[in-house]
Computed example of a mutant assay.
Amino acid sequence: MSRDIIAPPVLAMSHNRRYRVNIVHEVFGGDKWNSSKKSTSGQQKGYEEPDLYAEDDYEDDEEANKIETTADGSFLLNLHVPKSFYGGIIGFKGSTKRRIEEETRVDIYVPRQNENSKDLQIKGKERSQVCAALRKIRLLVQSLRRRMKPTHFLAVALNAGQVQDKFSELKKSILEAQLPGIDEALFISERSIHITLGVYVLLDDAERQKAVEHLQTCKQFLDGLTTPFEMKVKGLEIMNDDPSSTRILYAGVEAPELQKFADKCLGSFQTTGLCATDNNDRESIKLHMTVLNNRYRKKKDEKCANSFDARAILKRFGEHDFGTVQCNAVHLCVLGSSGDSDDFYKITGSLNF
């Protein structure tokens, strides 16, 4: 057995800490990294974390292809990152930024909040070092984005024609029934009814533009599908298993062609790094039209109950038929922008077909 495995090299750190330096397999460029840990003078160099991604892993990387060679032979990358992530990249007293710099042997410059510059700068002596830092920053941004509230969603508008009329009829019938715990504040506005196809965290103009442009590329998924999509909206269901204490009541949507398109869009947007946590963790979109949501009532009265009893609604109106409608566009909308204006959500961009 190799002595490097039985007695691996040890790196002395601050505060009397000592860590084993793992040997990198030759398949991942071990000759380069293992030899770099040894010093001809017998003293070890500072630790540099090996980037196990080969150079060709970055060939199709749009950002990595923007790396420039400077006059002094160094490599420089100007990387756009929304300012909302600056604090997380810097870390407490600069600890996170410093750790990435030490592990990848680069210098990272984060613009100050009042600067006009919108890009981080990553500078290193080798291109592989800049690529390694780029990958670490991306993973960090992805982790930070997962903790943030969604800002936008992809929607199919249903606020017209037969579906809207049938929705209004149902709303009127439920309110006239005067069911316990059910009031108008629970209902979504007739002008805002929709199907959600995806939820995203878009923090600046650049990310919003990127999302709109990516939406246009989704037009390729229409090939082989019949458009406009035919959608049948019928029946009421709840999101949980207890109808006596539920938060969301919705109408089912039957639209096989739209389902295929929505699932392909979901997978495509997952590659952009812009999805909210919920979208990253699913493989398919559940097509539905929200009718009642306790969150709407909470906005107007924070002290109201956290759920409502939907048993009477399901018993009396569970088979309600909203009719059919056609879909010839999907919209990237601002979450929560409908407000009390009874208008549809503010649209950032659309894909028409």
Rank of each mutant, 00 (worst) to 15 (best):
S2V: 06
R3K: 12
D4S: 11
I6R: 11
I6K: 13
P8Y: 09
P8D: 10
P8F: 09
N16E: 14
R17G: 00
R18P: 00
R20W: 00
V21H: 04
F28K: 10
G29Q: 09
K32L: 13
N34G: 10
K37G: 11
K38F: 10
T40A: 11
Y47M: 05
Y53T: 06
D57E: 14
Y58N: 02
Y58F: 15
D60V: 06
E63N: 11
I67D: 03
I67A: 07
I67N: 03
E68I: 09
T69L: 12
T69Q: 15
T70W: 05
F75S: 05
L76I: 00
L79K: 04
L79M: 14
K83Y: 08
F85W: 08
Y86V: 06
I90H: 05
K93E: 15
T96A: 13
R98I: 00
R98D: 14
I100F: 04
E101C: 12
E103L: 15
T104S: 13
Y109L: 10
P111V: 13
Q113L: 12
N114Y: 11
K118M: 12
D119T: 12
K123A: 07
K125S: 13
K125L: 14
A132H: 04
L134F: 10
L140R: 05
V141F: 04
V141P: 01
S143T: 12
R145W: 05
M148C: 08
K149Q: 14
H152Y: 09
V156I: 14
A157S: 14
A157C: 08
N159L: 07
Q162R: 12
V163F: 04
V163G: 03
Q164Y: 01
D165E: 15
D165F: 09
K166W: 00
F167M: 06
S168M: 14
E169A: 12
K172S: 15
K172D: 14
L175V: 06
A177H: 08
A185Q: 10
F187G: 03
I188F: 07
I193L: 15
T196N: 12
G198W: 00
L202W: 02
D204T: 07
V212S: 12
H214G: 05
L215W: 02
T217Y: 11
L225A: 11
F229I: 04
M231G: 05
V233F: 02
E237P: 00
I238V: 15
M239H: 09
D242F: 06
P243D: 10
T246H: 06
T246G: 07
I248A: 03
A251P: 03
A255S: 15
E257Q: 15
L258G: 01
K260I: 11
K260H: 09
K264T: 01
T272V: 10
L274F: 02
T277S: 12
T277V: 08
T277N: 08
R282P: 02
V291S: 02
L292H: 02
N293G: 04
Y296G: 01
R297T: 04
K298S: 13
C304D: 12
S307D: 14
S307C: 09
S307T: 14
A310Y: 01
L314A: 06
F317N: 04
F317V: 03
H320D: 10
V325M: 09
Q326N: 11
C327H: 03
V330D: 01
V330S: 03
L332H: 01
C333S: 04
G336E: 10
G336S: 09
